[in-house]
Design a protein around this nucleic acid. Sequence first.
DNA 1: GCAAAAGTGTTGGAAATACACCCATGT
DNA 2: ACATGGGTGTATTTCCAACACTTTTGC
Lengths: 251, 251
Amino acid sequence: MYNLYSMSTEANRLLKSVKTLSTIQTEVKNINRIALSVDCVIFGFDENKLKVLLIRSDLKKFHDKWSLLGDLVDPREDLNAAAYRILKERTGLNDLYLEQVSTFGEINRHPAGRVVTVAYCSLINIQHHRLKILDNELHWHDVHDITDLAFDHKQIFETSYRQLQRRVQEHPLAFSLLPKKFSLRELQNVYEAILDTKMDRRNFRKKFFSMDFLIDVNEMEQNVPHRPGKLYKFNYEKYEKKKKKWVGIDF
Amino acid sequence: MYNLYSMSTEANRLLKSVKTLSTIQTEVKNINRIALSVDCVIFGFDENKLKVLLIRSDLKKFHDKWSLLGDLVDPREDLNAAAYRILKERTGLNDLYLEQVSTFGEINRHPAGRVVTVAYCSLINIQHHRLKILDNELHWHDVHDITDLAFDHKQIFETSYRQLQRRVQEHPLAFSLLPKKFSLRELQNVYEAILDTKMDRRNFRKKFFSMDFLIDVNEMEQNVPHRPGKLYKFNYEKYEKKKKKWVGIDF
DNA sequence: GCAAAAGTGTTGGAAATACACCCATGT
DNA sequence: ACATGGGTGTATTTCCAACACTTTTGC
C-alpha cells in the first residue's frame, strides 16, 4: 500500500509502507511516470450544423481514420497551457472557450505505449479561422456523421458532446459559436443543432428576452432574402453578476 | 509543433514537425513522462452532517495539514482501477459510488516534482466501514470546517463538493450515503446536508413519491423516541429504464 | 399526558407550452 | 406579387412554494 501524502509513524501500524519524501521523489522522478497528452474536441457551427474538427490519422493501425487534435504534455508545461497551445496551433486563435471534460486512462488506449489523455472541449466561431484550415488533412465533420475514430477518440468525442449538450443548457456557451453580433434565429439554430431538437420560435424569444442578457446593437442582418432580423450581443458582465444558484431535485 | 496522431506528409507544409510513430514511442518512453496520481474525495454522512475523509500530512512543508487520500498511478494500472484501489485500501469496500471529477495539472502543485492528479469523488455509507478507520491519522471532517488542506487539495475538494451538489440534484446519488433501507426523513437530511439548505417536508415527500422510484419495504424505524417512520429502498432498475432526457435552457 | 417527529392536501403564482397572424425585405 | 423568414400575444397547463393540523410512538 502506498501513500503519497503522509509519512506518519503512527499510521504505520495500519499502513504498511508509508513513504518518505525522498522515496516519493524517487518514484516521481524514475519509476511511476506516464506519458500524458491533451486531446481537444473543437466544435464549430456552420451551415446550421454542429461540426467537430478532426485530423486524418496516418498510423497504419488507424489508416483512413480521423482523430482529435492532441499532443503530449511537456513536463514543464501546465496542463491547461498545453490545451491552449494545441488550440492556438490549430486555430490560430487565443481567448477561446476551453473547458476540461474528462481524463481517459485505460492501459492500452494508445499503440505507442502508456498514454493517459485529458480531453478538453472548445467552441469556436468557424468564420474566424476558416483560413487556417486549408490543410486538407484537417476537416470539419458533422457531429452526426462521426462513426469510428482512431484510438478511443469516439468515446472521448461522445463524452464531450454529451457534456456540451448538458452545459449549453445551463451556461451561456452558445455565443462562442457565433459572431459577436448575431440574430435570434442564428442563436436558436445553434441550440437546435447542439441539442438536436426543434424549438418554438416565439417561446425561444420570450425565454431569452426574459433572461435579459441580450443587448440590442441597433443593427440588422444584411443581404438576407427576407425580412432582416435584429442583431444582438450577449451581455457577459450582467450575466456574471446575476447568474443564478440552481436548486431543485430533478431526475 | 507536435502532433501525436498524424504523420501526414501533406500536413507537413503546415505543421512543421509532425512525428513518426517511432518518434512518438521514443517520447512516450523516455522524454515526456509525468508522474500521475489519483486523489479521492470520499464523502460520508453522519450525525446529519456531510463529512469528508482526510488523512494527516506529515510532510514538513504541510505539517499539521490534512490531505485527500491519494497515490501514484502505476504505469501498468488502469486509471479507474487506481481509484478503486485507493478506495479499497482506505474503506475496505468494493462496489462504491465513484466518479471522476477533474484533473489538476499545474506545474508546481506537488513538492516532490511534477505530479498531475486526477480527482475522484466517492460516496460511502459511513456505518459500513466505521471499523476500518480507527487509525487516528484518518479522520472524518465536516465539510463546513475545511479551511486549508495540504497541496492544492482545498481546490480539489471544493471542485468536488460543487460537482456533488450539482450532480445530486440530477442523479440518484444520495442513496449511496444511506443504508439500503432508509426513512424519508433521513433522505431529506442527506439532501439538506449536501445542499446546505432547508426543505419543506411535505413538498419533499410529494416530489419523491411522484417520481415513483421508492419501494416501501413495509418496515418501520426501530428505537426512535417518537413516531417511527416507514422505510424505503431506491428502485435502481426502474430508474435506469425511466431516466429522463433533460431539455430546457436555464441560466 | 407530553414531547417529538411522521404523515397528509390545498391553493396561488410562475413558468413552460401550444398555437396563428401580420410585417419587412429581396427577387 | 410572392416567397421567405421576422416579429408578436394569449390561453392552457404544469410545476413549484407556501402553509397547519392530526397521528403515532417513547418516555
